[in-house]
């Protein structure tokens, strides 16, 4: 679960994986205009949304955590690619295995 949440940090901020720090800051300011509770006084979810945005922002601004996230995304993408390259038999096998592990 934590993985999925972290993986979406780029999505939360709507920035590319190659975004520079300035891009991230800019995106954060633009996005916070849309979700900040000050702009949505009647929406109880706003605080939560803004919190997620801030978390994502802090994560991407921290070089260590960002590189860890990048690595995770890389592994995930690599796994996806490998999985796509499998033939149907191996796909089935892996799916079964994952099903049982769950």
């Amino acid at each position: 679960m934590a993985e999925e949440e972290q993986a979406s940090a780029y999505e939360v901020l709507a920035v590319e994986a190659e975004a520079t720090e300035a891009d991230i800051r800019r995106a954060y300011r633009q996005r916070s205009l849309k979700v900040h509770p000050d702009r949505h006084p009647n929406n109880p979810d706003a605080a939560q949304k803004f919190h997620e945005l801030t978390e994502a922002y802090n994560l991407l601004l921290d070089p260590i955590r960002r590189s860890a996230l990048d690595a995770q995304i890389k592994i995930k993408n690599a796994r996806k690619l490998r999985f796509a390259a499998f033939d149907s038999k191996r796909k089935n096998l892996q799916e079964e295995l994952e099903e049982r592990e769950r």
Partner: peptide, 9 residues
């Protein structure tokens, strides 16, 4: 503060 387009951070 960082000021940009009316956002005061």
């Amino acid at each position: 503060l960082a000021i940009e387009d009316g956002v005061f951070e």
